[in-house]
Amino acid sequence: MRFKAQVRVTLKESILDPQGSAVKRALHAMNHDNVLDVRIGKHIELVLTADGPESARRQVQEIADRLLANPVIENFSFDLAEAGGEAG
């Protein structure tokens, strides 16, 4: 079966986000003064084959934990859905 995982990687709440702060300052300069906070993360899409949703889920969990996110500074979450198209 073929699956598509959409992984979101975000900085932990306790971590200052210098990129988000720079974007917020730019937004304020554009007169969007009501923007109170900006946090920048990553959106990563994986397409993979697996025997079923459980094994796909386990694998995406491991991939995100070992490579896509750095657990020292980041959290991740993901959605998994069966994807159309030919397997492999």
Partner: peptide, 17 residues
């Protein structure tokens, strides 16, 4: 070395942008 876990911690972008 931080990413592979030989040393503790992580790098963030510079505070000065």
């Amino acid at each position: 070395l931080l990413e592979c876990g030989l040393l503790p911690g992580a790098m963030l972008p510079n505070v000065v942008p």
